[in-house]
Write a protein that binds this DNA or RNA. Structure first.
Lengths: 251, 251
DNA sequence: ATAAAGGTTTACGTTGCGTAAAGGTCAAGA
DNA sequence: TCTTGACCTTTACGCAACGTAAACCTTTAT
């Protein structure tokens, strides 16, 4: 039983273009090609296509699918694991992003004046009001609005939690920095721990941490007087520069 | 305070190429450009870039981000919250992907690989039946992941049936092996039954069984410490070696 | 016989940059 | 002051995984 390219396409749900492309990259070649150049596929190719589609739905790259299908049994393990690791890392990344958004939301509520409870109460209220009125129809449709209300309750709790965590980390950072700034005999270990704390704090709002970016931010701490002022005020004069130097040295 | 393109890049973690590209498509234009053509950014652009990156992480297309930022007269809160919801949804999606890969890995673990026919039989069947209905619909095509998840899920359930049977057999195998391992007076008959159970279990995934292959697998059980660990953990220290010896003797 | 339906290759468009290539600009040290 | 060397510029090709014509040939059905 031979299938034409269109029959194949309809059976599997892909386009004929896709099938020709898979032929072109030697991922899935027709069983036969007639005199006129028409492609014909047998059940063997149907099976193979199912496998391809299966892995494709798992977001494997076609080149990886090539390898998977080519390797009888050996490197398939490592490929799967590599992919698995990538996925897990991706999830971590998203987790940190979620924290970042939570943090940003909290931050934009004005961190100084209101208490946390007031802050979140107000936010909650406002959010319910504003829920519907923001994007254009087009974008809303595209990215889906059905699940918008689902995560609400758990999110309220989570965001308040992580916000408090973050504040706690910063409090400790300031404390340490203050002490460190007053010490006549400054130890390397203390500096390192301060940098670690700062990194930890940073990661509440930074999705992707890199030493480079960390140092870049450190430079900004003295380049931008708003930051200098902030740290000097909280942890004593010179604290901002001390923090910067520590980061540059140990981040 | 103006930042050079490199400072911007380091602060935000993107490449200078990206910044030039964003300038090119008018997504993020520098605050100033000097006589030499150098780009300089202010804190306004830093903020905007952060927003851009937020949406980018959510797989928004840059053209859509354009629109979003343009219509951002509304409240930041709403946008942030939409970020959050989308992130949560994305995490769900990745979770399902992780499970799917885990599942696939499970089949491959210990060479208990299902044949492709078994593996995709259900998947293929459903495909052929449902033909158009799965991928043909455009609604869920672009960003909707529900369909994909469902497809995976249905496949998973089908395979899970036989998978559960397998697990049941394995459970019994482990149980027997555990008891056998604790006995001071080990009977040949017990060993034989364990080997039979193991064979039965194997045949869920091996279409063609051979004593040779069985013994080969047994050797691997102590050659690969993951398997050694697996059986020793489940059935007591020494269980892996016991299983191997039994297989070598009676398979 | 004619038209509709389906097939072919060729090739450019898409998205979001990476990566040279070929070359100006600027701050700093000898 | 002059020369590095780091940093900046534009131009332009390359990538994945196809979509989408264009221009044309083959098969099938009436």
């Amino acid at each position: 039983m031979l299938y034409s390219i269109k029959q194949m396409a309809q059976m599997s749900g892909v386009s004929t273009r896709t099938l020709r492309y898979y032929d072109e990259i030697h991922l899935l070649e027709p069983a036969k090609i007639n005199e006129a150049g028409y492609r014909f596929y047998s059940t063997v190719e149907v099976d193979r296509l199912q496998q391809i589609l299966f892995y494709r739905e798992l977001n494997f790259k076609l080149s990886d699918i090539q390898k998977i299908l080519a390797s009888e049994n050996q490197s398939i393990q490592s490929i799967l694991h590599t992919h698995y690791d990538a996925l897990v890392e991706k999830r971590h990344h998203i987790d940190s992003l979620i924290k970042a958004v939570e943090h940003t939301i909290a931050y934009h509520k004005g961190e100084i004046e209101m208490s946390n409870e007031e802050k979140f109460a107000a936010f909650k209220k406002k959010r319910v009001e504003e829920n519907e009125s923001m994007f254009g129809e087009e974008i809303r449709e595209k990215y889906g609005t059905e699940t918008v209300d689902e995560a609400n309750k758990s999110w309220m709790q989570m965001s308040e939690e992580s916000y408090k965590e973050m504040q706690e980390v910063e409090r400790e950072l300031i404390e340490r920095l203050k002490q460190f700034n007053q010490q006549t005999d400054q130890q390397v270990e203390d500096a390192k721990q301060i940098v670690m704390l700062h990194k930890e704090w940073l990661q509440y709002s930074w999705s992707t941490y890199s030493s480079e970016a960390h140092k870049g931010l450190a430079e900004m701490y003295i380049a931008d007087e708003r930051f200098t002022q902030y740290y000097d005020e909280k942890a004593g004069v010179g604290a901002a520069r001390l923090l910067r130097d520590s980061i540059l040295a140990y981040a």
